[in-house]
Design a protein around this nucleic acid. Structure first.
Lengths: 144, 144
DNA sequence: CAACAATCAGACAAAATGCTCTTGAAGCCA
DNA sequence: TGGCTTCAAGAGCATTTTGTCTGATTGTTG
């Protein structure tokens, strides 16, 4: 099991970062990405379909087809990808699984969780894909 | 899919808190707990077996048998339950799933994640089951 | 029409849940 | 005491659900 994000979500993030390292508007195939990042080919296809439907990627079929970012990389923020794949569930459900848990009737971990969660999701909403792709380049690993 | 802990872990925590609300040494059956907390009977049985083997619960078979806390509730901390069920994996793997991610070669989210994670796990290591059971009683919900 | 790439539906695997039988403890009753 | 009944945990396997992965199809270019 994945740690925090689903496997799909991890792959989605990695792949969008990969796309952000390309020139704007340049087209890239699933084959290339799955090869470089070690993601199962067809599974990535399914993930990219979701991202397309949510307006994060554009796609084109055919011999010279592929995927590209629908917006400038600096306008795509990590939270966009996570919502597209995993939805809102992570953000607003009780960490202990109590169905009644809420601000007015908090579970014993509610406040601690909210603190850490808000901090982390805050970072996710600020972090854009362009910056992340640069950091990876600088770090020198996982560059295609 | 679960939010942060596995379903098993959620159930384990809820149940141990439930047990902490009983008198010390008092025995409680799976039937009672699964009924009150809405947890599938046999699934809870399996979870309690794990907790018994890890030394968090004691059990007794037979007509007046059941489970009880192996230690005073104030000595059981949330992290104990989580380790018993989900293991250490959550604590030290990369949130983006990059296999090479480490302190020396951090992924673009490494520091943000570490900050939130350390904060939250810090709380989990401080939070004991007795306090939590009291908070729930005070909150007035989920009391058996 | 041939080659290639996305798309879609369905197969497979793992986790969660449910079922059934076994084992052990307590109470009852000759 | 010794066997019988009852109740609860323990253990293994069956089923359902969810998440992951694959094979067949459709669209595009030359």
């Amino acid at each position: 099991m994945s740690v925090f994000f689903s496997r799909q979500c991890e792959y989605a993030i990695q792949s969008v970062i990969y796309l952000a390292q390309k020139k704007q508007g340049e087209m890239t195939t699933i084959k290339e990405i799955s090869g470089h990042l070690g993601i199962p080919f067809h599974f990535l296809g399914k993930i990219f379909q979701k991202l397309s439907r949510k307006g994060i990627l554009h796609s084109m079929k055919g011999v010279s087809g592929g995927f590209w970012l629908a917006k400038p990389a600096s306008d795509i923020v990590l939270m966009d990808i996570i919502e597209a794949i995993d939805g809102h569930e992570i953000v607003d459900s009780c960490v202990l699984g109590y169905p009644e848990c809420s601000t007015t009737e908090p579970c014993p971990l509610h406040n601690e969780w909210k603190l850490s969660k808000d901090q982390f999701f805050g970072a996710l909403m600020k972090k854009n894909v362009l910056d992340m792709s640069k950091e990876i380049k600088k770090g020198g690993y996982l560059v295609p």
